[in-house]
């Protein structure tokens, strides 16, 4: 099963932030590493799609006062998700193979 680019990006952020991968952590990780703010709604839409596909699983955290009494939702990548991400990144690598881009450093 192929992954869209946004889905790849979100899954990579979840992998990086595990076991503390919740909305704000993923949002900040993407902002820092991609140098652009991905809207929270987009992140959640992708997280939900990925969960439906069985690539991610979520669990509810504790409600805190600073979040207006709302609980965090932590995401974790599944084995199926890791395989799909790996396959998707390999496809991209195969596509990139042998291509030299102007301005590339490596």
């Amino acid at each position: 099963m192929t992954l869209k680019q946004t889905e790849q990006v979100v899954m990579l952020a979840v992998l990086r932030k595990q076991p503390d991968a919740y909305g704000v952590a993923i949002y900040e990780e993407l902002k820092t590493r991609l140098n652009k703010a991905v809207p929270m709604a987009t992140i959640y839409a992708n997280l939900e799609t990925l969960e439906k596909k069985g690539f991610l699983k979520s669990k509810q955290g504790q409600a805190t006062a600073e979040r207006g009494g709302r609980a965090k939702m932590f995401f974790e990548i599944t084995g199926k998700g890791q395989m799909a991400l790996n396959a998707s990144l390999q496809q991209l690598d195969r596509l990139r193979e042998g291509i030299k881009l102007a301005g590339a450093t490596a």
Binding site: G23, E48, G68
Partner: peptide, 20 residues
């Protein structure tokens, strides 16, 4: 109203945290 039902509370909480 716009947020998906399942993750609405988590999304609103995240937005509030980011807002602060």
């Amino acid at each position: 109203l716009l947020a998906p039902k399942k993750s609405a509370q988590a999304l609103l909480g995240d937005l509030l945290e980011t807002f602060h």
